[in-house]
Nucleic acid binder design. Sequence first.
DNA 1: CTGAAAGCGCTAACAC
DNA 2: GTGTTAGCGCTTTCAG
Lengths: 349, 349
Amino acid sequence: MSVTIYDIAKKAKVGIGTVSRVLNNHPNVSEPTRKRIFSIARKLQYRPHPVARALAGKGSNSILAFIPFFPTHFFSEVLQGVQSRLSDIDWELILYGVNHPDQLGTAFERHVLRTHVSGMLLFSMKVNKEFVKTSRNLKTPLVLVDAFHPSFDSITVDNKRGAYLATQHLIALGHKRIGLLNANPQSVPARERLDGYKEAMRDAGLTAHPELIKQSRSKVFDGFTRVTGAELMKEFIALKKNMPTAIFVASDTQALGALETLEENQLRCPEDIALVGFDDIELARYMGLTTVRQPMFMMGALAVEMFERRLKNLKGAPVHSQFTPDLVVRTSCGSSRERARSLDILRRA
Amino acid sequence: MSVTIYDIAKKAKVGIGTVSRVLNNHPNVSEPTRKRIFSIARKLQYRPHPVARALAGKGSNSILAFIPFFPTHFFSEVLQGVQSRLSDIDWELILYGVNHPDQLGTAFERHVLRTHVSGMLLFSMKVNKEFVKTSRNLKTPLVLVDAFHPSFDSITVDNKRGAYLATQHLIALGHKRIGLLNANPQSVPARERLDGYKEAMRDAGLTAHPELIKQSRSKVFDGFTRVTGAELMKEFIALKKNMPTAIFVASDTQALGALETLEENQLRCPEDIALVGFDDIELARYMGLTTVRQPMFMMGALAVEMFERRLKNLKGAPVHSQFTPDLVVRTSCGSSRERARSLDILRRA
DNA sequence: CTGAAAGCGCTAACAC
DNA sequence: GTGTTAGCGCTTTCAG
């Protein structure tokens, strides 16, 4: 079998308690023995047994991530950030795909309440009251990524600012009738993006006429889906002559849907209508979509770092970290600082 | 604290041994006591403690997945399949992102050799000799996904057949000079795709002239990258008048690169040259790329099922399961059974 | 059939 | 400072 603290103890002619203390950097161990034990441990290639350690009450060097069971580029990138930082500190990642926050219950109980996991990451999900209650007076740190709740550490992106940037870009290009194709304003990001849009319009002395603002009422993914993008774009097109000349779309995914609708109606982008998205999913690059980019990898890495800090200071006030997104200019607005890359090499048969 | 077998033993006035036996469906327990204990357990909402169980020698209900630390659509889809099946049987997924099979060592030792994990999934990686040796006489089942080694269970896709289908499609469209833009033929999938291409050509009485076959020598991801696609396409273009009229590209990712090169040279697809890819990554759909699709979700789910079976029969011969891929016809070959979707609504600025 | 007891490897409280 | 001991919750002999 593998080597245990007993082996070390025997070899060092000390008790297992001493060994444990040394290995855990406890004080009150004489320098000579400490050195001796370390050296023996190294020679024997001792590795602590994580399961035993967890059972005995110590944490577990593993963190549970709840991610929406939805294969988006956003998550793979964020997760890479998480993994990267985690492997630096030699922790492991347990992944839980869920579709709805309600499904958190079982996993939660199974892992967290059973010393199995000593940290949690929750991605892009609204936390319900019950969850908040259970988690709050828990010793297990929880950090929210791309989500927010005053009681927990969180990492978000400055949606308002991003929306402001996007809208401002459109304004700078000379557009006056600028629309907003939003997700469900009941969701925080959607509301913030709405605010950013409005503020940019106001600051430019432009009026955000109500008919220029189309918002989803969908509950599925808060309306951040291709379908809502397609549908709301139809409403814009129905405006006929009053159609906006440019639209800020609240997410790239919706922009994809919008693009499909445009195509069905023989409308071209950016000639007939300019579009800016939000998120910068991988497809955006290929579609030439100008969009607002979130620093996904960094958000993931930071999530782990916040968690580490929290581990050392369970009682501090929650910290909320906000990233500022960047505008990535491509071709969907008719302006391009980058070399324009059009994708019209693929034509209808 | 949470309820343990002691609680239920006390309440049932039996020893903890009996409780454990009942809970583990051991024989030799009288029907009355069995029923009584079950009912009490339910009433008390007893949940086994996975960590304790693992320490005591039982497995751990968790499986370790090694995936290339590379955010492709392929993995998110396969992983969804894995997760889906895993949650059916109430197991958990531990994720390990690695860039190179050599990095498997530490994770391997840390988890597998310490009762921490009772199964492993290895994705799209070549297993090195050392790894094989360590794993082989191990009780922990290992299943290879999108990879192959005679000693282990594996799930692959019939690359040769896929390549055959793709090439055949091109032939059916009337093409005679059909090229192959391959990855590094040192990798198994690349070699198999080469075989499929050749066979289809042969069966059609066409000759696969050497100049029609361009293969990568890259070691990074075995040449399955955008870069090699772009480079090899340049070689094709250099053929001038002898350029093929259609090309089977060994992966969608490479096809993307090839498309970029085409564009740079003002060549259009499919007018000037038809392309078929392989994989059906999400982008393929948006690019209108005709391609060969692997049933990713199913592969993931099946991986878990194979693992379950192996758990029950450690000693059986390795089973190798092979999926047959489908051809997905889009617009990059000039034929389309689906409604053609062109993406030229986005134009150069 | 069933109870008692011995661990699994480690931590932490308690003596000396 | 350091050894000893009592668990953590569960599985598994070993006696009855």
